[in-house]
């Protein structure tokens, strides 16, 4: 298989912060429609991998190819337009805007200065916003300022802001962290809907949740891939048990 046949091909990816290699010669490949979960102990470099893919952090060496494009050379907004959506660990929504406006800002139109000045809120926009709002359980709260939402609702809103971009690859950093049990259940349900028609790269700690959704699991440790395969494969890998699951 040629590496451009993968949706995402990460090869030899390295980033060093003042000599400390947070990600060290990392390679992995995502196939279209795959649900991949990255797990690993704290400090393994999981979030840094997402930062590198979405352009927040620049790689020291290595390549990230996404649908035939080299992402390491592109600017953040260009990476978004190429089709990569990223959700941050802490919910980052626009608290002073309403839920509707939050989704509207993420709608993939009017993204230039002039485009945004000329942007019209037409029926297509309203429909897209309402449809996503239903998916993320916030349909009744469209007029609320996002600052008034609960922690879990903010997480959903941010996921919704990604969905409305229609990304080819969706990257979620600990989507259920800090959620109540009920919210967790709903989020799992939400992710199952999303994963039906997106390629998803998730960082998660909740092994139950990982087992539920993952096609394949990549275990990271000290910036490197420790193990990769099905959930059962990694669960039974003695090195994984040693550094991660055993704790």
């Amino acid at each position: 298989m040629n590496k451009d046949d993968f949706l995402l091909a990460v090869e030899g990816l390295t980033v060093s912060f003042d000599g400390f290699k947070a990600v060290d010669d990392l390679s992995f490949y995502l196939e279209p429609q795959e649900i991949r979960v990255i797990i690993g102990p704290n400090g393994a470099g999981k979030t840094t991998v997402l930062d590198l893919i979405c352009g927040k952090t620049r790689a020291t060496a290595g390549s990230i190819r996404f649908r035939g494009k080299e992402l390491t050379k592109m600017k953040e907004h260009q990476i978004v337009h190429a089709g990569v959506g990223r959700k941050f660990q802490n919910p980052s929504v626009f608290e002073d805007l309403t839920v509707f406006e939050n989704l509207e800002v993420s709608y993939p139109m009017g993204h230039t200065v002039m485009g945004s000045l000329a942007f019209k809120r037409d029926a297509a926009v309203i429909e897209a916003v309402e449809s996503v709002a239903r998916t993320i359980f916030l349909h009744d709260l469209l007029a609320e300022p996002a600052g008034l939402l609960s922690h879990g609702q903010k997480q959903w809103l941010e996921i919704g802001m990604l969905l409305i971009q229609k990304p080819a690859l969706l990257m979620l950093d600990e989507p259920v962290a800090g959620m109540s049990v009920a919210e967790r259940k709903k989020t799992a349900e939400l992710l199952r809907v999303i994963t039906r028609d997106h390629t998803v790269l998730v960082i998660e700690h909740d092994m139950q949740f990982v087992g539920d959704i993952a096609d394949r699991v990549t275990v990271m440790h000290q910036g490197k891939v420790l193990s990769e395969g099905s959930i059962d494969h990694v669960k039974n890998d003695p090195r994984v048990i040693e550094v991660y699951l055993g704790h």
Binding site: C54, K56, K75, E76, H77, V80, H81, G85, R86, F88, S92, V93, F94, E95, D96, L97, N102, V105, S106, P108, H111, T112, E158, M161, Q165
Partner: peptide
Amino acid sequence: VAMRDQENRVRFSGYDV
């Protein structure tokens, strides 16, 4: 306003901040 709140989120929503 969004930029004032969360500049990074705007950037990663595809805007050249």
